[in-house]
Amino acid sequence: MFYNRHPMTNESNTTRREPLIDAKLVQRLAVSDSGFVFDPVSGHSFSVNETGLRILRLLKEGQDLPSAVKALCDEFLGSAADIERDVLEFAGLLRKQFPA
């Protein structure tokens, strides 16, 4: 399956093991159904749209990239390649919310 390729190295059959983002960081977020997200540690808040909200919830469950993409592909109508690219991009945006 395509998402067994490492998205950066394109090496086949190597599955990215580490989660997209530290689940502990995501866990602490207060996420409301409207897509309003508040981080009680940093005091930052941000808004996500419905698909962003869905990804956030999957990440909160600690899902890794392949399983998150798989879940989204089951749930939505869209190409797996597009969904994978968008999830990676979204995780990147999310990581920016947690400066080291």
Binding site: S32, S34, G35, F36, F38, S45, S47
Partner: peptide
Amino acid sequence: DLGQFESIIVN
């Protein structure tokens, strides 16, 4: 209240 702020932000 955070909810009021959220409401302004979201809606």
